[in-house]
Design a protein around this nucleic acid. Structure first.
Lengths: 144, 144
DNA sequence: TATTGTTATACTCTATAACTATA
DNA sequence: TATAGTTATAGAGTATAACAATA
């Protein structure tokens, strides 16, 4: 179990997964992927809030957002409620990219879980999610 | 499920896990951890073979091995069968460090899995291992 | 000629600090 | 004064290439 977690969190594994997912989509790479998928998950938000949501530094998030904007996948618009804030939103092309990325991930998972007993996938996902939360919380707790 | 995998493979999560594990052990950090634990797993090997085993570049493995050697955790000895090769081995202090690291990981996992139904842990570990293998193999296969 | 170990170099990613504009 | 966004700078990590020694 420890070995499996170790292997899954290896930089090479992570980089391999992301680059495989993004290889078919123009304008996205392993580093900008979390920003794009995060934006798709939480909807239009400011860069600071998005950075918090995906566990990334503000400055990195804004830089990657600029890259994605240059690629035409996301857009910036002023927040009507706060003139300081800028909201990030997916463009139509960005939506298509996200759809493609999700499709690639889902087809991989479907293939992987094809032989699993019914109902196992949900239980596995729940445990994996909880495990990750514990890891993140444990880290956050350490700074207190 | 995709979200759980995404979160687990996030750089921040990985860095957090590794730095938490290694925070109590002198001479090991998040970057040298895979080298040390890999060496403990596969036994005395050359830097090139160790790098392959843990999915890391040869040059990076040798540099991190040097760091670990300077910290007194591993040692280099000539391979009797091949004068070109140098075998990496754990020192007594390195063995103690690995034991401490494994203990930290296992206590975390034990705490996490305390509420799981009996037998679930083994099934979960098996599926997680298989999932990771598929990710790695899929990446390797792409280069052919 | 190929391989091992290593070092040098350049490149990318990340983080700290600082700046501007607005609340 | 504090916060959002951004940019600049420095530091760490990684990968490509090249070297000497040996198979």
């Amino acid at each position: 179990m420890a070995a499996a977690i170790g292997a899954l969190t290896l930089r090479a594994t992570r980089a391999g997964l992301y680059s495989r997912l993004t290889s078919g989509v123009q304008g996205v790479d392993a580093t900008t992927y979390p920003v794009l998928s995060g934006l798709a998950r939480v909807g239009p938000v400011t860069a600071t809030k998005l950075a918090e949501a995906i566990g990334m530094d503000r400055t990195v998030a804004t830089r990657y957002a600029t890259r994605l904007q240059e690629a035409g996948l996301i857009d910036r618009r002023p927040d009507p409620a706060d003139a300081r804030a800028t909201e990030l939103v997916l463009t139509a092309e960005g939506e298509r990219a996200v759809t493609a990325l999700r499709g690639a991930m889902e087809s991989f998972l479907a293939e992987e879980m094809a032989t699993w007993p019914p109902g196992e996938a949900a239980a596995f996902a729940m445990r994996l999610e909880h495990l990750t939360e514990s890891l993140v919380q444990g880290e956050a707790g350490r700074s207190c």
